[in-house]
Amino acid sequence: DNPAIEAEVIDMLSRLLKQLGLEDFNLLINSVGCSVCRPAYVNKLREELRAHADELCEECRRRTETNPLRVLDCKVPSCQPVIERLPAIADWLCEECREHFALFRKYLDIHGITAQLAPRLVRGLDYYVRTTFEIVSNRLGPTQNAVVGGGRYDGLSELIGGPPTKGFGFALGMERLVLLVSGRSELGAPYQAPAPEIFLVHLDTPAFEHNLKLAAELREDGIFAYIDFEGKSIKSQMRQANRVSAKFTCVVGESELQTGRFMLKRMTDGAQVTLGRNEVSEYLRKEE
């Protein structure tokens, strides 16, 4: 329960981001109280929101009844004037929660970590208590800019049938982190998805089902096989094979299923080879 643990976790995250070459991020913090003080705040919040329901978007009106704290997360511009006038949860914290949050901020200072108090920063899930935080980067835009978010979730273990257990953790947005570090010379070239060794084109449902099994067998042999799942035409599937830079294509229809012979076409030069099904994997491995 010691808030020093929370500061330690955030210090670890800060060091990680800096080691990845990120310096321009901000730490936002708040406290969402506990089961003692939060219910009164939620009731007050719901009361205020109901009084201004006609100024809120449809989603916020729904959340007013189901989970008022989630209204504070709303990014709809027309809702912001109402949200800005709502009471802050910091004014409703019990003495223990106030002391916990004050110690947390003290320990951040000891670590030399600058934090910005964000009164509207909440977690809409009931098992979150006390400390919440986000690490944001303006390079991701003004709204969906959180790289890391988390907090204390002492109630989670009990919620899923476990014993009372203290907890503090976070979720890290890998896609957003990749966007921020991509292209940095010291980290190597930006990530590029590998090209499929083969794109299996199907003409009908039996061919599609055959290709599912063939793709699984090829993947078992370490070969990247690609299949269309959207029911596209042959022409569209071939265009997709070009878009994903597949090395080979193989069109499967009734004839291929009957004969057990499959024609592979190399996309770079159009060269073709006809193989038995059990020869496809070995041929592709040699062509890698």
Rank of each mutant, 00 (worst) to 15 (best):
208 F>A: 15
208 F>C: 09
210 H>Q: 02
212 L>P: 05
212 L>K: 14
213 K>P: 01
213 K>Y: 02
213 K>V: 09
215 A>G: 10
215 A>H: 09
217 E>L: 12
217 E>P: 03
217 E>I: 06
218 L>A: 04
218 L>G: 05
218 L>R: 06
218 L>E: 06
219 R>V: 02
219 R>Y: 03
219 R>M: 03
220 E>V: 07
220 E>H: 14
221 D>C: 05
221 D>E: 12
222 G>T: 08
222 G>R: 08
225 A>I: 02
227 I>R: 08
227 I>P: 10
227 I>M: 11
227 I>F: 07
228 D>I: 05
228 D>L: 05
228 D>F: 03
229 F>I: 07
230 E>F: 08
231 G>R: 11
232 K>V: 01
232 K>F: 01
233 S>V: 07
234 I>D: 03
235 K>T: 10
236 S>P: 02
236 S>R: 13
237 Q>V: 08
239 R>M: 05
241 A>F: 03
241 A>C: 09
244 V>T: 12
244 V>I: 12
244 V>N: 11
245 S>I: 02
245 S>F: 07
245 S>G: 06
245 S>R: 12
246 A>R: 03
247 K>E: 09
247 K>I: 08
247 K>F: 02
248 F>G: 01
248 F>Y: 15
251 V>I: 15
251 V>Q: 07
252 V>L: 00
252 V>C: 02
253 G>F: 04
253 G>P: 12
253 G>L: 07
254 E>D: 12
254 E>S: 03
256 E>H: 00
256 E>F: 01
257 L>V: 00
257 L>A: 00
257 L>P: 01
257 L>K: 01
258 Q>F: 00
258 Q>K: 14
258 Q>E: 15
258 Q>S: 11
259 T>S: 14
260 G>T: 07
264 L>I: 06
265 K>I: 05
265 K>Q: 15
265 K>T: 14
267 M>S: 12
267 M>N: 15
267 M>D: 06
267 M>I: 06
268 T>V: 13
268 T>H: 11
268 T>F: 05
269 D>S: 10
269 D>T: 09
269 D>P: 14
270 G>C: 12
271 A>G: 11
271 A>C: 08
272 Q>M: 12
272 Q>G: 03
273 V>E: 12
273 V>G: 06
273 V>H: 10
273 V>Q: 13
274 T>Q: 13
275 L>Q: 07
275 L>K: 07
275 L>N: 08
275 L>A: 04
277 R>Q: 13
277 R>E: 15
277 R>K: 12
280 V>E: 10
280 V>D: 10
280 V>Q: 10
280 V>M: 13
280 V>W: 07
281 S>L: 07
281 S>G: 15
281 S>K: 13
282 E>W: 00
283 Y>K: 13
283 Y>E: 08
284 L>S: 10
